[in-house]
Design a protein around this nucleic acid. Structure first.
Length: 490
DNA sequence: TTTTGAGTTGTTCGA
DNA sequence: GTCGAACAACTCAAA
C-alpha cells in the first residue's frame, strides 16, 4: 500500500472488458482510491501475437461498450497505444498512481509482459496485484496426484469437478471514483478510432455487424437468451448447425465481456431452479464445453508454444503437402463438399463457425488436403471473432492428431456423411451455399451424385455454378492413412 | 513399481 | 437396412 490513500489506482483492462465479476476492478473500487481505467493496444511487443482482423473488429466494439459503461458511472476508459510495459510505467509516473490491478492472462507473450511490469513498478513503490478473472480454474489449480498437469481431458475435468465450486461472481461496483487527469492527454493515450481496429476500405465487416452485438450488456443478453431456450436439449442440439443449438458466447468469453464464472453459475442456477427446463445431461454437456476451454488454457500454460509446435513430436515428420490451390479453395468455401464450403463461408461472412462444422473443415484441411494444421490455425486466427490462442491452437492440434489428447488417427470425417447426419434437411448448406438450395435434400450433401435431371431442375452445373469435389474422399482418406503410417513410431 | 482400464465428437466393411 | 468388429498402438492416470 502506497503512502497516500488519495493517490490513484490503475485498472489495466485486457481480456476482461466488463464491469461485473471483474476482480481487478472490484479491488480498485475497494481500495477507495480514484481509479484510472486503461486499455493498452500493444502491437510492438515481440512476444505478442497481433490480433486477427475479425478479433480487431470485435475489440473495437467491446472497448467502445466498456467506455460507455464506465461513462455511465461518471468516468471512462483511457485507451493507449504502445509497448504495454512502457505505457503503464508512464501512466503511473504521470498520475502518481500507487496501485495497479489487473486480471491474469495465460499466453506466453502476455505472461512475459506481466512478469516484467511488477519489478519496474515495485521499484517505484507501486503495488501490483493480479487476479483470476478469466477461468474457473487457473493452471496449477488442477494437477494430477503426481503433481503433473493433466494431458487427458476427462481426467482433468473429473479432478476439477472434485474441487470446491468456483467462487460466486461478484457484482459490478455500484460506484467508482474516477481519477481526473491533471491536464491534457495522458501519455500514449489516443481515441479509440485512432487504433483503426475496424476495417474501412474495404469495409468487410457488414456480415459481422449483422450477426453480433458486442459488449458486456450484449453478452449478458446472449446468456439469458441461451438459458431461456438453448440449454434445454443442448446435449443433442449443440451438434446441429441447422439449429441455433449452441450458446454463441465464445466471442464474449474471448474478450471477457462475460466471465466463465458468470456463465457457469448462471447455467447451474437455471437448471436447479427449473427455469431452463433442461436436464442434468444438458447441463453436463454445456459444462463440459466450459471445461474444454479450461483444459485448453492449462495446456497453453504448460506448453507455451502450443500454436507453433506439435505436442506429439512424431508429427514433426508428417509429410504435409504444399497445396496453394487446395488451401485457397478451402479458405473461400470452394472445395466442392457442401458442408465444408458452408462452414468456410459462414466463417468468412460472420466471423463464426458452428462447432461441429469447425471439426469437419479442420479434418478436411489436415486429412483430405494433408495441409499443415498451422495453416488452418492461422486462417481461423484471422477470421474468427472468437479467435483465442488457447482454444484455437489446442483444438487444431486435437483434430490434426498432433495434440495432447488427440483424436485417434483413423478418425477421418467423411464430409458427406457428416453433412447428412448433422444437417439432415440441408438448412445449413442452403443458407451458406445458396447455389445448391434447390437441390433435393437427398443429394444436397453430394451434388456430384445427383442425377442430370435433379441438377438441371436445381439450376446447378457442376464446375460452373458449384465446384466438383477438389479431392475424392476415398483417395484422400487412403492418402491420409498412408501419411500417418509413415510417421508411426517415429 | 506394476498393472489396468480408458481415452469428445468416426468410418468402413462384411455378415 | 442394421450391427459389430476392425482400424493400432500408445500414453495417461490411478489403483
Amino acid at each position: 500500500m502506497g503512502a497516500s490513500p488519495s493517490a490513484p489506482a490503475i485498472v489495466w483492462f485486457r481480456n476482461d472488458l466488463r464491469l461485473a465479476d471483474n476482480p481487478a476492478l472490484s479491488a480498485a473500487s475497494r481500495s477507495g482510491r480514484p481509479v484510472l481505467c486503461v486499455y493498452v493496444h500493444d502491437e510492438e511487443g515481440e512476444d505478442l501475437r497481433p490480433l486477427g482482423g475479425a478479433a480487431r473488429w470485435w475489440l473495437h466494439g467491446s472497448l467502445s461498450a466498456l467506455d460507455r459503461a464506465l461513462g455511465d458511472l461518471g468516468g471512462g476508459l483511457h485507451i493507449a497505444r504502445g509497448r504495454a510495459e512502457e505505457v503503464i510505467d508512464a501512466l503511473v509516473r504521470e498520475t502518481g498512481a500507487e496501485e495497479v490491478f489487473w486480471n491474469r492472462r495465460y499466453d506466453a507473450g502476455g505472461r512475459a509482459v506481466d512478469e516484467r511490469v511488477p519489478a519496474t513498478l515495485e521499484a517505484r513503490g507501486v503495488a501490483v496485484e493480479s487476479f483470476n478473472g478469466h477461468l474457473l480454474r487457473e493452471p496449477g489449480d488442477v494437477m494430477s496426484a503426481a503433481g503433473e498437469p493433466y494431458r487427458v481431458f476427462t481426467a482433468y475435468w473429473r479432478a476439477a469437478s472434485r474441487l470446491d465450486a468456483p467462487p460466486d461472481p461478484a457484482p459490478a461496483p455500484a460506484s467508482l471514483t474516477f481519477c481526473e487527469p491533471a491536464s491534457g492527454p495522458l501519455p500514449g493515450c489516443v481515441a479509440l478510432d485512432d487504433l483503426a481496429l475496424e476495417p474501412s476500405s474495404p469495409d468487410w465487416a457488414g456480415g459481422l455487424r449483422a450477426t453480433w452485438e458486442r459488449g458486456e450488456a450484449a453478452a449478458q443478453a446472449r446468456l439469458e437468451a441461451f438459458l431461456g431456450d438453448g440449454l434445454r436439449g443442448y446435449a443433442e442440439n449443440r451438434d446441429r448447425p441447422d439449429r441455433r443449438g449452441t450458446s454463441r458466447l465464445s466471442p464474449h468469453l474471448r474478450f471477457g465481456e462475460i466471465s466463465a464464472r458468470q456463465v457457469w453459475h448462471a447455467a447451474c442456477a437455471a437448471v436447479a431452479s427449473g427455469e431452463a427446463e433442461a436436464s442434468a445431461r444438458d447441463l453436463d454437456a454445456f459444462s463440459n464445453e466450459l471445461g474444454w476451454r479450461e483444459f485448453c488454457y492449462q495446456l497453453l500454460f504448460h506448453k507455451p508454444d502450443l500454436a507453433r509446435e506439435n505436442v506429439r513430436a512424431e508429427f514433426d515428420g508428417m509429410p504435409w503437402r504444399t497445396d496453394a490451390r487446395g488451401l485457397e479453395a478451402w479458405r473461400r468455401g470452394r472445395t466442392g463438399y457442401p458442408i465444408v464450403d458452408a462452414g468456410m463461408r459462414e466463417l468468412w461472412t460472420t466471423g463464426f463457425m458452428h462447432n461441429r462444422v469447425r471439426m469437419i473443415v479442420a479434418s478436411f484441411l489436415t486429412k483430405h488436403l494433408l495441409v499443415d494444421w498451422r495453416e488452418g490455425e492461422a486462417w481461423f486466427w484471422d477470421t474468427l471473432v472468437d479467435a483465442d490462442l488457447a482454444n484455437n491452437a489446442a483444438n487444431w492440434q486435437w483434430v490434426a492428431g498432433s495434440g495432447a489428447d488427440a483424436a485417434p488417427y483413423f478418425r477421418i470425417f467423411n464430409p458427406t456423411l457428416q453433412g447428412e447426419k448433422f444437417d439432415p434437411d440441408g438448412g445449413y448448406v442452403k443458407t451458406w451455399v445458396p447455389e445448391l438450395s434447390r437441390l433435393p435434400a437427398s443429394v444436397l450433401h453430394r451434388p456430384w451424385a445427383a442425377s442430370d435431371a435433379q441438377r438441371a431442375d436445381a439450376g446447378v452445373v457442376l464446375g460452373e455454378d458449384y465446384p466438383r469435389p477438389i479431392v475424392d474422399h476415398g483417395e484422400a482418406r487412403a492418402r491420409a492413412l498412408r501419411a500417418w503410417r509413415s510417421i508411426r513410431g517415429a
